[in-house]
Nucleic acid binder design. Structure first.
Lengths: 252, 252
DNA sequence: TGCCGGCTTTGATCTGGATCAAGAGATGCA
DNA sequence: TGCATCTCTTGATCCAGATCAAAGCCGGCA
């Protein structure tokens, strides 16, 4: 066993970390990733299925919409965005995936991916070949339940984008959501590195880039956040939560 | 067997019809209602479970949000609306239910209804006590699959309300959706009686009542529809579809 | 028959956010 | 090191739709 110990945040975002070993049952993220809730012996069965993906460069695609579902992926390091093409041919940013989050559920229903997923920064993933995973679920019912749970979460997760909230509410909810997800299942972190460009955030929230920029400036003026390029500090958590109050929590 | 024969539209909307008998396996709507796709012998098993509800008066509630799920309901005659209360205490119209459509799926997940459902006109329903229904699904797998199908449909059905479509697109999609649903699974009917007041439509589509009124006027001016109070004729189907083109079909 | 209270339409004005336009930092590359 | 490009911010203007306000219109009821 590798003796290096990871601190809670060591593997998050841009701070690359050496993973102690390549087993779900030993992974420091494991408690919050696909093996969440699995008893140790079942988590160990995941080890035999999981493979480590090659390092992915910025803008490199994990898969494209229309391709058959071959595997599910868990983000190991970095960040991804999933996009779809709308009926007028414009790209829609469906969502972002941070470390320990699952990618590929969009392809489960039809067996074909509905979105394209690309890396926002240098990133890496764990690969769970879908066929092998499904074979496991038949006798590991906890895993099946966990997959269902993650699907529901995915469905709910996009609630903030829908509804007719205004730009401030959407953005506040989005920033809080990110802050919650940086430490998965841990408490909210007040320092967040935004791994995506402004344009992607604006697209995802369905507001113009200019509006995003202005609302961010307003939030800073109101002392809700401090922002230096991609690095955000949440200064007034309660204030930010109050702005987003109308948007349902949408997270689990 | 009752010898009276119903024409395709006889039971729809305000035209009250005598139902030949009170069995799912004999019901003229059955082909498009809960028993859809069930082999005859399994449809007959539904008969033993189904009960006929009393006539419901306008504005009378079928159930309220927060009440435990006791039964699923199929609309027999009339129309219903389902509503929820948002975080500011305002009523949100979630959707409308027309004859042969199922009511109560909102309570399946939590065992407690998430919406309140009330009659828009004098209406009647078929009642399927949930417990008995669930006991059936365990050995009638077709029924379980049908229930899943209807749930997915319900989830998809509200897609038009989300997304950032403009008032014209939303409304065109809504009117087309109604026209499709009046003859369930049959072809679209060009004459539709809107069973709900304008205010409910506006609330559901998240536009102001005044905007709704103006867009309806515009549609008439453009020769897309003709409208006399609650009675709508679709004049230019292709035109209406073109206006709604950006909104995903959302129906099955 | 005439009045009252819901609905629905129509008009005037206001506003959040989009769009257009231009400048200011960053970042990359030769 | 300097130019080109991309990203982000800031300012000006425009527009869809909300809001405010005031009629019509209809059905119910005394």
């Amino acid at each position: 066993m590798n003796s290096s110990v990871l601190t809670a945040g060591a593997w998050q975002q841009s701070e690359e970390a050496v993973v102690p070993d390549h087993l779900c049952s030993r992974c420091p993220r494991g408690r919050f990733c696909l093996p969440l809730g699995l008893p140790l012996d079942e988590a160990q069965r995941l080890d035999s299925v999981m493979r480590i993906g090659r390092v992915m460069q910025t803008k490199q695609y994990l898969f494209h919409a229309g391709e058959p579902l071959k595997a599910l992926y868990a983000v190991r390091t970095g960040a991804f965005k999933s996009t779809a093409i709308d009926c007028d041919g414009y790209e829609q940013v469906i969502g972002f995936q941070l470390p320990s989050e699952l990618i590929g559920l969009d392809g489960v229903h039809a067996g074909v991916h509905q979105c394209s997923v690309s890396a926002l920064t240098v990133s890496s993933v764990c690969i769970f070949p879908y066929k092998a995973l499904m074979e496991m679920t038949s006798d590991v019912s906890t895993l099946a339940r966990q997959l269902m749970r993650l699907m529901c979460k995915e469905i709910n997760g996009n609630m903030a984008v829908i509804g007719d909230y205004m730009a401030e509410e959407r953005l506040a909810a989005f920033l809080l959501g990110l802050a919650m997800r940086v430490h998965p299942r841990g408490e909210l972190s007040t320092r967040v590195v935004l791994p995506m460009p402004r344009a992607d955030i604006a697209n995802h929230l369905r507001i113009a880039g200019e509006t995003l920029s202005r609302v961010l400036a307003r939030f800073q003026g109101q002392g809700l956040i401090e922002l230096d390029h991609r690095v955000m500090h949440i200064v007034d958590l309660d204030g930010l939560e109050h702005v987003s109050r109308r948007v349902p929590p949408a997270s689990l």
